[in-house]
Design a protein around this nucleic acid. Structure first.
Lengths: 127, 127
DNA sequence: TCTTTGTTATATCATCACTATAACAGAAAG
DNA sequence: CTTTCTGTTATAGTGATGATATAACAAAGA
């Protein structure tokens, strides 16, 4: 479990944690049923406050990526909600692709970028 | 010039302004050389403070979407920097697509989403 | 001269991110 | 039963940020 935090980033620590763990799930570094470190453990590992980790876990629970078990702590449990995910992504991508398009990035180049990223999450030979 | 602000959003007003104007450029609502309203005008139109608009214009200048002309105010002037744009997009998209992938959204569905968004920015029949 | 432009300088207020302690109940292990 | 670990809750302080309110200035244009 390798989680690196950029303390110079303007992105909040707890958000970096959330993102990092979600990417970890996507890359199959974490699997459904796996338990994350306890809030105190992870806080000590990274060198931050317990509540910052707790907030990240709370967000992950809220967003449907983990369930909190009083005995085992935060356990990976991904809610599949394709429609919701597509709707959320659409708004954000609209703004991101407006930027790329203005800067001269073509539709084709974006498709290639999508493939490059999705290759990290699903083996090509599987489909 | 229609700019709507969601005052209930957790996204900062100046960031909403920046995003809205960039999308406006992408959809060719604004063209290179067009002048945006003065900071005071736009602030009055929206009903917000002058400095909030000023900050948005400052960010747009920093990111290379407008140039500030003391006579004409903020003028659309897009810096083309494909490589920089691709690099910036890659980081953000990595996290976004991690989310969609976890939620069961397939690579194909993402490609379709990309096409739907890019259709708003470039006419299909042009290429 | 009068108006409008961007620019700069203060000051205030609310919210947020993060930290620091502290205490509690539930569960597991000795 | 006691100890230890878990998440949970509460409270408080600090620093940064977003937004507001005034105010004043120089440059440009009518």
């Amino acid at each position: 479990m390798l989680i690196e935090i950029d303390f110079n980033s303007s992105e909040a620590i707890y958000e970096q944690l959330v993102d990092r763990i979600i990417v970890g799930i996507a890359t199959e570094e974490f699997h459904d049923g796996d338990a994350l470190p306890s809030v105190r453990q992870l806080a000590d590992m990274i060198g931050i406050n317990m509540h910052t980790v707790n907030k990240a876990y709370g967000v992950l629970q809220q967003e449907g990526f983990v369930k909190i078990d009083r005995r085992r702590g935060a356990v990976i449990a991904v809610d599949i909600d394709k429609l919701q995910a597509l709707r959320e992504a659409e708004d954000i991508l609209g703004v991101i692709f407006a930027r790329t398009h203005c800067r001269g990035v073509t539709r084709k180049e974006v498709h290639e970028l999508v493939d490059r990223i999705y290759d990290q999450y699903e083996r090509k030979d599987v489909r």
